[in-house]
């Protein structure tokens, strides 16, 4: 795996902003502006030859590292009584909120690579890799549908998993888990209608982050 990092450094040079080796997997981070160029090198260079795109997905880093429930001072103060929302609503456009993560596989060299590219700006926009790996087509449609990331020069950027006429991007961290609308059959109109959602999300198990180093291992830092 060290040879892979060296190969990458040699060929991509300064275009790698950050690289790391974690649980035996190499991750590199590149600028969104360099993406097409980097991907072409990754695919076409003989020593790299990442000829298959295994996976492509969006990640929303809006609430990364934020816990529902502070547990650091509990012995002194006790727990707070409950958790109202479960999600940190912070619709401020934070820098580098979205990232697109590409998982590449080289069948020739039998190695894998993870490429991450943070996107700044509103709306989030990044170059499509469908011309480079044909298999990216639906993955990009999915990331657009679920996160609202736009892929420039994608041949057919439509919603894929959500309903026809759906509003919003459900996998964003500020999209409520229970959704905004629900459907029911209306006997008077004789058809299925939409209405605002009537259920309320209950957080049964709060998200907690503990810094007691129970599982911490050297050389691990966060991904975002």
């Amino acid at each position: 795996m060290d040879t892979l990092i060296n190969d990458l450094r040699e060929r991509l040079g300064a275009r790698i902003i950050n690289d790391k080796l974690e649980t035996g997997q190499v991750t590199i981070e590149v600028n969104a502006a360099d993406l097409t160029e980097v991907c072409l090198i990754l695919r076409d260079d003989e020593a790299l030859a990442f000829n298959q795109l295994t996976d492509l997905c969006g990640v929303d880093y809006l609430s990364y590292g934020k816990a529902d429930w502070e547990t650091q001072d509990t012995t002194r103060t006790g727990f707070s009584r409950g958790v109202s929302q479960g999600v940190y609503i912070d619709t401020q456009d934070i820098e580098n909120r979205f990232a697109v993560v590409y998982h590449l596989l080289s069948l020739q060299h039998n190695r894998r690579l993870r490429v991450r590219s943070f996107i700044s700006g509103q709306p989030a926009k990044i170059a499509s890799v469908t011309p480079i790996w044909a298999g990216a087509n639906w993955f990009e449609r999915e990331a657009f549908d679920l996160f609202g990331i736009l892929f420039e020069e994608h041949p057919d950027l439509r919603r894929i998993l959500t309903d026809y006429g759906f509003r919003g991007h459900p996998f964003r961290k500020d999209f409520p888990l229970e959704g905004n609308v629900e459907v029911r059959y209306d006997p008077e109109q004789g058809r299925v209608v939409y209405q605002p959602v009537t259920i309320k999300n209950r957080v049964l198990v709060p998200k907690t982050i503990r810094h007691d180093n129970r599982y911490a291992k050297p050389g691990q830092n966060h991904g975002g």
Binding site: E22, T23, Q25, T27, T54, D55, G65, H103, R112, R114, T208, I209, R210, R214, Y215, A216, K217, Q220, N221, H222, G223
Partner: peptide, 9 residues
């Protein structure tokens, strides 16, 4: 249980 920060495929 808490899982250490990081990412994995």
């Amino acid at each position: 249980y808490c899982v250490p920060p990081g990412e994995v495929y």
